[in-house]
């Protein structure tokens, strides 16, 4: 099974490399980081520039990458269902569940690519144009370089979890419809609806979109010389995101198994 899923994943990656929307996502993330850079504040002035990184990460990963990933993953299955090419794909020795898993792995890889790009751009800009030192206030070293790097690593790891949930959401909706346009509109509609009602219903902590930016709170706070605790945000983020990922992925597999793809 692993081999078949891997083959499906590699085929999807090869296909994705040829898609324009893949590179549109890469460009969108670069623009988001560039906008944060244009807001200023990065300079060789003896002050650490983690604040720029802390601004660029949520903008690049939590917003630009998430939006592009939602659209990208919504286009994974629906076009093949609509055109009927899925029947050709499934003539290969691959089960429908493995087909969905391969697609999800491709979306996860795309999320990782965008996150890596945002991180690389932000760190490169901070290192070249600014300074990467410890965070000091009043002559007192509050956080060392290593502590800041750890905060970034932790934030990056946590930031991947809502992205994975977003990819699963896009994939699930993509499995439910044959229209690409409908899939993309539906996935953004669900996101907006979730964000609108979660605070009213008091379930915001259970919804993975809540953690798109808050996973960077430790890095942002430390960059400003503020104390910040990983808990309970980290386990809430992990619980909500992994739970949503598992549910949506299972839903996508279930929908695909029961789906009539004959035409």
């Amino acid at each position: 099974m692993t081999r078949r899923v891997l083959n499906m994943f590699l085929a999807e990656v090869t296909r994705g490399m040829r898609l324009r929307q893949t590179w549109a996502g890469v460009a969108a993330v670069a623009v988001a980081v560039g906008v944060m850079l244009a807001r200023g504040g990065v300079a060789r002035d003896g002050r650490a520039d983690y604040d720029f990184i802390a601004r660029a990460m949520p903008a690049g990963i939590g917003l630009a990458a998430f939006i592009m990933l939602l659209a990208w993953s919504a286009c994974l299955v629906a076009p093949e269902l609509g055109s009927g090419s899925i029947r050709l794909v499934l003539t290969r020795p691959v089960r429908r569940g493995e087909y969905v898993l391969g697609k999800f792995l491709a979306a996860a890889a795309y999320a990782a690519l965008l996150a890596l790009e945002a991180s690389a751009l932000a760190w490169a800009a901070a290192a070249v144009l600014g300074e990467i030192t410890g965070v000091e206030f009043g002559g007192e070293l509050l956080f060392t370089k290593e502590e800041m790097a750890f905060a970034w690593l932790g934030g990056s790891a946590l930031a991947m979890l809502p992205l994975l949930a977003g990819a699963a959401l896009g994939l699930f909706i993509s499995c439910c419809t044959r229209s690409t346009g409908l899939a993309v509109s539906a996935v953004f509609g669900v996101w907006i609806l979730l964000d609108l009602v979660k605070h009213f219903l008091g379930v915001d902590r259970l919804v993975f979109t809540t953690y798109l930016e808050s996973c960077w709170q430790v890095l942002a706070n430390r960059a400003d010389g503020l104390d910040a605790e990983w808990m309970p945000m980290a386990w809430q983020c992990a619980g909500a995101s992994l739970g949503a990922t598992a549910l949506l992925l299972a839903g996508a597999v279930l929908v695909m198994r029961r789906r009539d793809i004959s035409g």
């Binding site: 949520p58 939590g62 979660k198 809540t210 930016e213 808050s214 942002a220 910040a228």
Partner: peptide, 10 residues
């Protein structure tokens, strides 16, 4: 701490 969107919603 939740970021711009969450703060605005709150």
């Amino acid at each position: 701490d939740g970021g711009a969107r969450e703060t605005a919603a709150h």
